[in-house]
Amino acid sequence: MPSPVFSAARTPALDPSALPQHAPLVAAVRSGMVESIHYGSGIALLADGSAAATAGDPEAPFYPRSSLKPLQAVAMVRAGLDLPKDLLALAAASHSGDKRHRDGALRILELHSLSITDLENSTDLPYGTAEREEWLRNGGGATQLTQNCSGKHAAMAATCAINGWPVRGYLEPSHPLQQLVAATVTELTGEEPAAVSTDGCGTPLFAHSLRGMARAFGRIAHAAGGQNGTSDDGGPASRSAEAAIGLAMQQHPHMVAGEGRDVTELMRLLPGSVAKDGFEGVQLVGLADGSAVAVKISDGGDRARMPATVRLLGALGLDTEPFAATAPVLGGGQPVGLLQATDFLK
Rank of each mutant, 00 (worst) to 15 (best):
E134C: 12
R102V: 09
D103G: 05
V74K: 01
R30P: 02
L177N: 08
S113N: 11
G278Q: 04
T198N: 10
P84H: 09
A325H: 11
E131A: 11
S238M: 09
M33V: 15
S31H: 01
F323T: 03
E131D: 00
A73I: 13
S115I: 14
L312C: 03
R305F: 13
E134Q: 08
E265G: 07
P166G: 07
A324E: 08
P64L: 13
P61L: 15
W165H: 03
F279A: 13
P84G: 12
A105Y: 01
A157W: 04
H252C: 10
S174Q: 04
R219K: 15
S150Y: 08
L270T: 01
R107N: 08
A44L: 01
S238C: 06
G332S: 05
L71Q: 01
H252P: 00
Q334S: 01
V5R: 13
T117F: 11
T143V: 04
L68D: 08
G139H: 04
F217P: 06
A248P: 07
E191P: 04
R268H: 12
L109M: 02
M306I: 14
P335K: 11
L111Q: 08
A105S: 01
F344A: 10
A89L: 10
G300W: 10
K99N: 11
D15L: 09
K85R: 13
A158E: 04
Y39Q: 15
A9D: 01
S115K: 14
L338T: 12
P16H: 00
S122Y: 00
T184F: 07
S231F: 13
L114A: 02
P12C: 04
G235I: 03
T54V: 14
D124M: 12
E242Y: 09
M249Y: 08
A130W: 09
A327V: 07
E120D: 06
A292T: 11
D233E: 10
L136I: 14
H153A: 13
T320N: 03
A304S: 03
V196P: 06
D299L: 14
G337Y: 02
P61G: 08
H222P: 03
L270Y: 10
T143L: 12
W165V: 15
V256I: 14
L330Q: 06
V77K: 02
A183C: 05
A154H: 06
L266E: 07
T230I: 14
A105W: 01
D48S: 03
V5N: 07
R268S: 05
P307K: 14
V310A: 04
L284I: 15
E133F: 12
H254E: 04
I162T: 02
N148F: 13
P328S: 00
P126G: 05
D48F: 04
G80I: 00
W135K: 10
P84M: 12
L210R: 00
L71T: 09
L330I: 10
T203C: 03
A194H: 09
A47R: 10
